[in-house]
């Protein structure tokens, strides 16, 4: 691959991802509306697509206010981390054969590392705001994300065992015959649940729970800094959806009448929609319920899954 090609890929991925994140504003509002028997934004532009422009402009023109009681440097840094870490994770996603920024042999570990860094944005944002609701949100966020990272990682280990590689392109290639969703259904479900928790999306939006904590860790944020949290969340959704596609649904693989990247995006988009559907249908659990489910149900389950997978892998190989 030439350097130009490489730069093109980097720029392309960045461009596509940011646009998807922005576009999701519209998608989410329209889809939520449809599932709630409404129409959603349909006035600005065709099908209301320009609501994205309007929203962005609005965010840009809002007063970019830093509370006088906040820790200024950290306050500014926090939203940058969330966008940064989520975008960096896309480095290892293979969109199609050859279209990947860096097909690392520790790809999966890189992804897990990046999502761990994402926790910092919430903790630092909540802490720097110097506001008790924000701090509570940050605490919840930290414990929730650290907890779910554990079995997020463990749930993927089954796939790694079956593939024998951390490299994502290898994992996709290993699904040529059969998607891992069939071999690893429990892992897939747990990964998805952990993914929701990791992106603190509804119904697991406990760090920002409006009805309890106003807006949790980002209560003090406004303007484009709030916008960055907002965008970070959508990039997170896209990331988890891409990972689902890559890990369990055969990545770019699909019948030849569509190019591989199209398959990848179709699958990813389906998961994004599923994220939104979950938001439309499920209520938020209590914080203790969330932690209990994590540690008492999902963790044992994922360990058993790992054990069984390991046993089966040994048996079939042996």
């Amino acid at each position: 691959m030439t350097v130009t090609q490489h730069v093109l890929i980097v720029v392309g991925v960045l461009f596509v991802m940011l646009n998807i994140a922005a576009g999701l504003i519209w998608v989410e509002r329209r889809m939520l509306a449809l599932w709630q028997d409404r129409l959603g934004p349909n006035r600005a532009g065709p099908l209301g697509i320009f609501i994205v422009v309007a929203d962005t402009l609005k965010l840009f023109f809002k007063e970019d206010w830093i509370p006088p009681f906040a820790d200024k440097k950290v306050f500014v840094l926090a939203p940058a981390i969330v966008v940064g870490s989520a975008l960096l994770s896309f480095v290892i996603i293979p969109f199609a054969p050859g279209i990947v920024v860096a097909d690392l042999n520790v790809g999966l570990l890189f992804f897990l590392a990046m999502s761990s860094i994402g926790v910092y944005s919430i903790v630092l944002g909540g802490w720097a705001s110097n506001n008790k609701y924000s701090l509570l949100g940050a605490l919840r966020g930290a414990s929730q994300m650290i907890a779910y990272e554990v079995f997020m990682g463990l749930s993927l280990m089954g796939v790694v065992m079956l593939t024998g590689s951390f490299k994502l392109s290898d994992i996709v290639a290993a699904q040529q015959d059969m998607w891992f969703i069939i071999k690893q259904p429990v892992a897939a479900i747990i990964f998805f649940i952990a993914g929701i928790a990791e992106t603190h999306r509804l119904p697991f939006d406990i760090p920002e729970a409006e009805s309890e904590l106003i807006a949790g860790f980002h209560a003090e944020y406004s303007g484009m800094k709030f916008g960055m949290f907002f965008v970070g969340e959508y990039i997170g959704i896209t990331l988890i959806s891409s990972m689902m596609t890559t890990m369990f649904f055969g990545g770019w693989l699909g019948p030849a009448f569509l190019p591989p990247w199209a398959w990848f995006f179709i699958k990813t988009f389906a998961f994004i929609l599923f994220f939104i559907l979950l938001r439309a249908s499920l209520p938020r659990p209590r914080y203790d319920q969330l932690m209990e489910t994590g540690w008492k149900i999902l963790l044992p389950l994922v360990l058993v899954n790992l054990l069984v997978t390991g046993a089966v892998a040994l048996w079939t190989r042996g």
Binding site: L34, Q36, D37, L278
Partner: peptide, 19 residues
């Protein structure tokens, strides 16, 4: 019940809109 809820919500996609 969670799955049923998700499914029922999904079906609302095809309902008549009240707006």
């Amino acid at each position: 019940s969670h799955i049923r809820t998700i499914w029922l919500t999904f079906l609302h996609l095809f309902k008549k809109k009240v707006t």
